[in-house]
Design a protein around this nucleic acid. Structure first.
Lengths: 239, 239
DNA sequence: TACTCCAGTTTTGTATCCACTTCCCAATGC
DNA sequence: GCATTGGGAAGTGGATACAAAACTGGAGTA
């Protein structure tokens, strides 16, 4: 009897919209697709060697998540890469702070055993984070990655399916700003690490409200710090 | 000079995916498409007299927003209408509470003039709400509509584009539960109206934190009240 | 010179076709 | 009698063909 793996497509022909989506998203996040760029279905299709059908799906998703937008002014209703502005960053960070705050609150309301194992994990990540920031020329990718892992961890553990999905859709958009941020502010990372400790502590001792507040504070301050960078560097369409 | 309305399509040939999306969403929200129902592209296409292409777009959007989900056991990956559960309601309400809380906070941070005109509007809506609930056999649709308008108003005024978009995507899902709720709990509407007053007051006097808290309280309590209804009525796949 | 109008080209939106997967059911063999 | 398997049916995902709309540039005119 021949077994045809039921749903497991090792890498063969997984759903292409998702692949296109992920690659486009990475291009946007890493700035290789500059803000304001127009996205043309046929070009993308050619580039990824697929037809327009899966591209359309990917674009729709990107648009719904806010990476691209149908230009606001009356003219040119073609999809363009969303711009990077201070105002947008503020709003985005406050939303992420609120969503993760919700997860932080839930994490602090978990049974004691789970809380303490989670806290242990978070401490380990945060220490790596601290160490990575302490070396002479910090690796920005690594710093970003550790910060991201820190936040993701407690969300994964504590959030329900809806919050998780929302977080996964919204949070990566902050990456566009965070990458900018981390490359300019690696000296302020220590402050961020201290804020992380406040989060860990609130979770560990089981204070939901404090955890919520600590998460929000972290994101609020991040927005402030980022604001200084943007002011200094100017809001640029491309970097 | 002849002006050819640039993007404004009065009603002519609006995008069909959106129409299909809205109609399907209404069917789901009003329970005419029972939770668990399988949605078949070809059937829908026939029903709305369009081809499968726009239907596909609509389904994709519905799935992304959480109205439908791919059935878990690698069946034919056919999308089904999301079920209604108490746990889901709790999570959903807490998310909406958090998002609207953010908007409430922003509303309370507006300049005084805007705050007071907003407060005036909200008071008017809330009084209609109260009155509509006070009559012998309240009109459920009207009650729902007024509550919805109340919340939407301060979000529209105070939220930025991102928060607004998120709210519009998430909030309507609560409608599935709220319609159930309002038809069973019209006698508790007065309590809800009082909670609304706390929100209005916090916005009027400009206390962002209090506004945030008042909004969250309203949603938290709504989830509690809804929980009692569901417990009493049983979690039903269809109603 | 600036503005309008028009035609060509680009790009999106819709319909249809094809391939592949999954599902259901019935016939068959143990 | 029951499990297995094979074949058709149903359905989705991808590609392509076609139509409609929008942007482009340029030519003509006030």
């Amino acid at each position: 009897m021949m077994i045809r793996a039921p749903g497991a497509n090792p890498t063969g022909r997984a759903d292409r919209p998702k692949q296109v989506y992920e690659q486009l998203r990475d291009l946007i996040v890493h700035g290789r697709l500059a803000p304001g760029s127009r996205l043309v279905e046929t070009d993308i299709a050619k580039r990824f060697v697929v037809s327009r059908t899966p591209v359309r799906g990917a674009l729709q998703r990107l648009q719904q998540e806010g990476y691209i937008l149908d230009s606001p002014s009356m003219r040119q209703s073609r999809p363009t890469v969303a711009p990077l502005t201070l105002e947008d960053a503020r709003e985005l960070f406050s939303i992420v702070g609120e969503l993760e705050g919700l997860a932080g609150r839930a994490a602090a309301a978990l049974p004691q055993a789970k809380r303490s194992s989670l806290a242990k994990e978070l401490i380990a990540i945060n220490q790596d984070f601290r160490k990575a920031a302490a070396v002479p020329r910090p690796n920005h990718n690594r710093l970003f990655d550790l910060d991201e892992r820190f936040h993701r961890r407690y969300v994964e553990v504590a959030a329900g399916p809806r919050l998780l999905a929302l977080h996964q859709a919204v949070k990566p958009q902050a990456e566009r700003y965070e990458r900018l941020y981390v490359s300019f502010l690696s000296n302020e990372i220590q402050i961020s690490a201290r804020e992380h400790e406040a989060i860990i502590n609130a979770i560990e001792v089981g204070k939901p409200t404090a955890a919520h507040g600590a998460v929000q504070t972290n994101w609020h301050n991040a927005a402030e710090r980022l604001g200084r960078v943007i002011k200094r560097a100017g809001e640029r369409g491309r970097w």
